[in-house]
Amino acid sequence: MAEIALAEPAVQSKRVAALRLDRRHLLGLVLLGPSLVFLAAFTYWPVVQVLWQSVHAESRAGNVYVGLSNFAAIFGDAAFRRALSNNAIYAVGTVVPSLVLALGFALSLARSNALNVVLRSILFLPVLVPLVAAASIFLFIFLPGVGLLDYYLARLGIQGANWLGDPDIALYSIMALTVWKNAGYYMLFFLAGLQAIPPESYEAATLDGASPWQRLRYVTLPYLRPTIAFVLVIALLNVVTQVDHIFVLTKGGPSDSTNLLLFYIYQQAVEHYDAGKAAAATVVSLSFLLALSAFSLRRMDAGADMEGGRA
């Protein structure tokens, strides 16, 4: 996708001369104009600014070009490496469970009947709650000693944990909240994907004597491949772009144990007041995102082609 975006302007500029007097194209450009202006002002210009800031350092004398030293500084920073590894654990620990759960929910609630509609709505409910609000609710659930979780654990005679204050547990508490929040959303995509599977395929499989497990493995999952790839991209983007709950629950603590990339960027920008390092960290996380999206979308294309070929 990135390649296409880069290639387009070059192709356009070659054609511009030929098209200059073509009224239909002019109209098209005029209609596109407002969006292009906004896209340039709010997407591409900030990207350029971030790239520029990432190789400069602010000082009292003004901005100085410092080459790659901002990048060297963040990779030398233990907090940044911690944020990177936290983000990796967080990615695996939230994406896999929420996708598996979402698929499970979708499979068991695929049939449309009154009960399933109610159950689907219940599972979808966490999606409707803004992440900030959800985090505030979980602040009380996780409260050590008096929180909802510890209250019920105490009734069972179990000593609760310091869910958000123990560096060994805090990240997993945050991950539990994230899975709770996102599974219902991904379920929606899987439900839509399941509707698109032709019933004949199941009939054929059943006639061939396929067990339920075999039907899932050889009919459902192959048909769902494009959906899975798509949901995977969305889920991975969420991993990098959502930190509202970190902000509310832990501020990256204790001892940086729940610090994620985006929160690290925030800390550099506003706590350390270091725009250069913040920009460098932004560039790093943006490149991750671009690479991930490009890779997943290519795989998705490949998957779709394969399905097409098979059909």
Binding site: L143, P144, L164
Partner: peptide, 20 residues
């Protein structure tokens, strides 16, 4: 004193509920 990080609101809630 409990282990790990304690948050301000958690401490006051704990005191108010008689748990500290």
């Amino acid at each position: 004193h409990p282990a790990g990080e304690q948050k301000g609101p958690g401490v006051s809630t704990s005191f108010l509920s008689g748990q500290s």
